[in-house]
Amino acid sequence: MATSPLTMLVNPNAFFGRNPTEWEALRIPALIMLAAAVVAGAMAYLTTGLVARIMPADVQAYQGVMLIAGTASALIFTFLIWAVWAAVFFVISLAFQGKGSFRRTLAVTGYGYLPMVIGNLLSLALLWVALPGIRVTPVSGMDPGEIQAVTTALMHQPALLLAGLLGIIFLLWAANIWIFGIRYARGLSLRHAAITVGIPVGLFILMTVWNLGVFT
């Protein structure tokens, strides 16, 4: 029972508290990250389509290129960010004399992405329903200020705000898994593990909330 990734979702302490050899393999985390990458690619496809609609008519001619570029970027960046999160956790944990391989940290980080896959699937469904109904006004030219203003207005759309909120909720869930995972992957106390994960995740949430324009 404790070996199931589903157990990890509700009781990460038991899941990662086992012998690390039972979970440090990267096969399952990689599969989780692949799923995350596919969902992120689909979300990127939808949002790029929306952004393309605000572009001037001559730019909209390249909508196909924009969609491919946006989707491919999301796929690649998901794997890149996996490594970045793991690296950040690894480096911060050094301050607490953390031990354990980077491979284990990478595995923990990958497992922790599972809640975000679920959250992103919900966001994807929300965007799928809401985006076609959003009325956008194309910008008149390539003025960066105008594009920024229109994009900001777009981001304030309730559906996009809600998708962002869903992302934060499921990131908190992921952070909870990461804390217990890092604790065992790097041999830290629960408090140090919480700090190791809490600092970057907290900063990321602040940045996300700022980007959503909640403070503006």
Partner: peptide, 24 residues
């Protein structure tokens, strides 16, 4: 209005918040 989430979706989000908080 067309893009505004329905009350059902808002309720669902709050339920998710509670579930995640309970899990943590």
């Amino acid at each position: 209005q067309a893009t505004e989430p329905s009350r059902f979706i808002t309720l669902l989000v709050w339920m998710l918040v509670i579930v995640v908080a309970a899990l943590i």
